[in-house]
Design a protein around this nucleic acid. Structure first.
Lengths: 147, 147
DNA sequence: TTATTGTCGACTAAATTAGTAGACTTTAAA
DNA sequence: TTTAAAGTCTACTAATTTAGTCGACAATAA
């Protein structure tokens, strides 16, 4: 499971990717458009800024905008920033590894091998899906529905 | 992420699958062999019994034993019993579905489509891995190491 | 200089996780 | 028929995570 934080982050990024010429959007604007709690969204956007995915400008006419191309921002990266590990269990996490206390020998643990397979399959999908892909798909599906 | 409950459950099932002629094993025996907290394991085994994966006999010579063939017990089933959903988010869960409050239209949500792909890939692996597979793999790897 | 907009730190309620404890019930064997 | 061996049931708990909120503050454009 991912948390709401990550889900909201992806929604916000899709909104920002849809902004013409990467024009800054207000937190309130994003919150409104995507139906997200504003105060909570604030802290999420800050996390994304610290991770150099977003940048911001204060004062009138300011707001948040993408710092990377929307096709370079992968969902995988966003999950890692907000939630941490992708893996089913800490012993198979690439970036947040932790040893299992109860395991006598990690290298001959068949559960671990299986969880590595799940991890790799997940990373394959999440690492190949960008915010641009999601925005494009969204537009496609909306058009289909309105035909 | 799965919880320790699920990880311990799988370890216990591997131990039970290794018991000759499905001879009952004591909770304490399993806990010892797999290095798991005994009192905690108790409640896990009870859950598995309620789900008809295990059965038990009280009194001397009693203990827990498999109720299904070890090649019919899929890891997928065990996760669902102990942890619940496999999916990355409740809106894509098959058995524990919950609508997203913030979503205007679930059917045109591109995040959801992506999470369905991850779910399907995970289910494909977890639903095709049985306790028998894990036990076999464990034995294989231990032999390799001792050559 | 002031209105606008993001930033920072602290706080909180509820849920989940990872257990533990003790009394109780069932059953096999002496 | 008693007793020891096992599992069962209910309740409790400490720590962590989640999903937020609040208010004061800092930066900037007009």
């Amino acid at each position: 499971m991912i948390t709401k934080k990550t889900k909201y982050a992806i929604k916000a990024l899709i909104a920002l990717a849809g902004s013409k010429d990467n024009k800054p959007m207000l937190i309130a604007e994003i919150a409104n458009q995507e139906n997200l709690p504003k105060r909570f969204l604030e802290s999420i956007l800050l996390d994304l800024k610290r991770a150099k995915v977003l940048n911001s400008k204060m004062g009138a006419g300011g707001g948040y905008f993408l710092m990377q191309n929307s096709d370079e921002i992968k969902v995988l990266e966003i999950i890692r920033i907000l939630d941490g590990p992708i893996a089913l269990y800490p012993c198979v996490s690439i970036n947040f590894y932790q040893r299992c206390e109860e395991c006598k020998d990690e290298l001959t643990c068949s559960i671990r091998k299986m969880m590595q397979k799940v991890r790799d399959a997940s990373i394959d999908i999440l690492g190949n899906t960008s915010i641009a892909d999601l925005l494009k798909k969204e537009v496609e599906m909306e058009n289909e529905n309105n035909e």
